[in-house]
């Protein structure tokens, strides 16, 4: 019994990180209707930025979150403005191919610059743990959990309480309708992509303190973001939370009861099952066409 509670704690901590990490992916899919295959590599770029800031300027990885977020925001807007906008009017496959190519380009560039070495950001609080009776909670995971929760909440406020957030949701719900009432979709696309990439970069900070990373981690992360989006449903903050927690708990329980090596397999299997039986996710409604 104790062990189940312990596993649930682990799953909750991990799941919240997944939720925050996937938000950007889910947003650009739900709002602009593009699948960004380079998303995981964006997270990895954030992790490397954190690494440089930490090793060269000794800036704590948690304090550099605003920096990586801003860098991601700029990178995302440039990406949308100069690359994605150009192919958006063609069939959806073009965007897929574009982001696929971008992923290869970026991950190999990282490999050229940083080599294939596993890098890690070794902060002093990384090895400590809290003990609550029989339960153990790693300090760094708890910090990442709290930060993910705060950032996710901040995004929720942004999406529901600000004009920009409402505009994003309006465009996601009905492109034509929103332009009729004076919202310019192309501007919203730009902001969404910028915001999404900012989220990706800054979740790189959290990823970097959680575990070691290499230039080629992006693929796995993209698949995770994909699963979170499918399970939860698209474009909404609460859907990402549901999806993230689901994935976190699924991974933890699979590694414990079936074996670490089955984690990825199970993840893909569940994704397949969702696509077949519940393609709109746990919280229903495909965002883009939702009534």
């Amino acid at each position: 019994m104790e062990i189940i509670v312990q596993l649930l704690i682990e799953g909750l901590l991990l799941g919240t990180f997944y939720a925050f990490m996937s938000l950007g992916f889910s947003l650009s899919w739900g709002v602009i209707n593009i699948l960004n295959l380079a998303y995981g590599t964006f997270v990895v770029i954030g992790a490397y930025m954190t690494y440089i800031l930490f090793t060269a300027l000794s800036i704590d990885p948690l304090l550099s979150i605003p920096l990586t977020f801003s860098a991601g925001f700029l990178f995302g807007s440039a990406l949308q403005r100069f690359l994605i906008n150009r192919v958006l009017s063609y069939e959806p496959f073009m965007v897929l191919i574009l982001t696929f190519g971008l992923d290869i380009f970026l991950s190999h560039s990282l490999n050229l610059i940083f080599k294939a070495d596993i890098r890690s950001v070794d902060v002093s609080y990384a090895e400590k743990s809290f003990f609550f009776g029989p339960f153990i909670v790693s300090q760094v995971k708890l910090i990442v959990f709290i930060l993910s929760l705060l950032l996710t909440f901040a995004l929720y406020i942004l999406m529901t309480r600000t004009w920009t957030g409402r505009a994003i949701r309006a465009v996601a719900l009905d492109r034509e309708g929103s332009s009729l009432v004076g919202v310019d979709p192309s501007k919203v696309f730009l902001i969404t992509m910028a915001l999404g990439t900012g989220i990706a970069f800054s979740s790189g900070n959290l990823y970097a303190v959680l575990q070691g990373f290499t230039p080629f981690d992006g693929g796995f992360l993209t698949v995770k973001a994909f699963l979170v989006s499918i399970v939860g449903g698209l474009g909404r903050v609460e859907s990402a939370l549901a999806g993230g927690l689901f994935l976190g708990i699924l991974e933890i329980f699979t590694s414990f009861y079936i074996g670490e090596e089955w984690k990825f397999f199970t993840t893909l299997l569940v994704m397949l099952a969702f696509l077949i039986f519940k393609p709109r996710g746990l919280l229903g409604g495909k965002y883009y066409a939702e009534a």
């Binding site: 062990i3 682990e10 590694s255 414990f256 074996g259 670490e260 090596e261």
Partner: peptide, 20 residues
């Protein structure tokens, strides 16, 4: 007696098992 995938960076569940 259990394996973990190559390149794994977090062995939490294995550690929980050993701890138990």
């Amino acid at each position: 007696f259990e394996s973990y995938p190559k390149g794994a960076q977090d062995l939490s569940s294995l550690m929980l098992k050993i701890r138990m």
